[in-house]
């Protein structure tokens, strides 16, 4: 196979080259710019140049800024709540729907809908549904005998009410990816397990889940990245309130850049958010690699 190996050496860098070059072309400058800006103090003025202040911005976000620290904790918590719920529900739905049944096409179309709906529009529809005295959510809740909630209108429940929107919108993604994963599972292990007299539950835990894991981890990875960066729905629905109860890093970052014009400080927050997401991703990638690579 010497011929094959030589060709392989070329193919191994030729195949990914276009993707890597293209991505590099559009992200290198932003990375350099953000990194440089994070070392400056600058308020977007046309009259003064950015002033180099070394690592002072980083020192401040790590040590001095309680609002930032709280935002980090909140962001992580929001992500865990939302993604965990999405994964559990999504896998459950995939298992349920992984069969022949009448209306399957309709179901899949329906499942795609929440993902394609524009987040801002959906968020606004939820704003109206969550309205404590005019909203349909409390109408439905009280109809089934529960007492009304405050939804996004109380510090205690706002973060969960936002997570619920995220869950509503993205559970179908996990379901679709899990369904695709289920469709590509080999049959032999199940046949073998069946012959060995394994129960369906055992087959699920010992065959389905491990085989599904690589695909699922990718889905979770992407959901986690997006959830850590959630912006649209929070911005539309609570703007981080009540008080700062739903202020995530991305929201704070946006405010620092485009409301407070604190460009250098915002850049350092962007780098910190990047580090947080990158760190979480590497952990997830490790989980994935332990099965596949």
């Amino acid at each position: 196979m010497s011929l094959g190996r030589r060709a392989h050496r070329h193919a191994a860098w030729l195949f990914p080259a276009p993707a890597v070059l293209l991505v590099a072309a559009i992200i290198v400058y932003p990375i350099v710019y953000t990194g440089w800006m994070s070392l400056q103090e600058w308020f977007a003025s046309s009259l003064t140049r950015p002033r180099f202040i070394g690592l002072a911005n980083y020192g401040k976000i790590v040590l001095g800024d309680a609002r930032f620290r709280e935002a980090v904790a909140r962001t992580v918590y929001f992500t865990i709540v939302a993604v965990a719920a999405e994964t559990l529900l999504g896998v459950a739905m995939a298992l349920l729907f992984n069969r022949e049944f009448w209306g399957r096409g309709l179901l899949r179309t329906l499942a795609i809908l929440p993902m394609v709906a524009t987040p801002t529009a959906i968020a606004l529809v939820f704003v109206m549904m969550y309205h404590p005295t005019l909203g349909v959510a409390n109408y439905l809740v009280t109809t089934v005998g529960l007492s009304p909630f405050r939804w996004t209108y109380s510090s205690d429940t706002a973060l969960y009410a936002l997570a619920l929107v995220d869950v509503w919108q993205w559970t179908p993604l996990i379901m679709l990816i899990a369904l695709a994963g289920l469709a590509s599972l080999p049959r032999e292990p199940y046949e073998a397990a069946h012959l060995d007299g394994a129960s369906a539950r055992q087959a699920f835990w010992h065959i389905t889940l491990p085989l599904l894991r690589p695909t699922l981890v990718v889905a979770i990875l992407f959901r986690a990245i997006d959830a850590l960066k959630t912006f649209d729905i929070i911005f539309v629905m609570t703007q981080g309130g009540p008080a700062n109860a739903t202020e995530t890093i991305n929201l704070l970052l946006f405010n620092q850049a485009f409301s407070y014009f604190n460009m250098g400080y915002a850049a350092s927050m962007a780098v910190a958010l990047f580090a947080l997401v990158m760190g979480s991703s590497l952990i997830l990638i490790k989980v994935r690699r332990s099965t596949a690579w």
């Binding site: 993707a19 890597v20 991505v23 559009i26 992200i27 400058y29 932003p30 990375i31 350099v32 710019y33 953000t34 992407f222 990245i225 960066k229 912006f231 991305n250 970052l253 946006f254 850049a257 485009f258 460009m263 915002a266 850049a267 962007a270 958010l273 990047f274 997401v277 990158m278 991703s281 590497l282 990638i285």
Partner: peptide, 18 residues
């Protein structure tokens, strides 16, 4: 992982340099 970096960078950070 390199490809993923593109997705991980917060979108807001892209705006001015882009």
């Amino acid at each position: 992982v390199v490809i993923l970096v593109a997705r991980i960078i917060p979108g807001i950070a892209y705006l001015i340099p882009w």
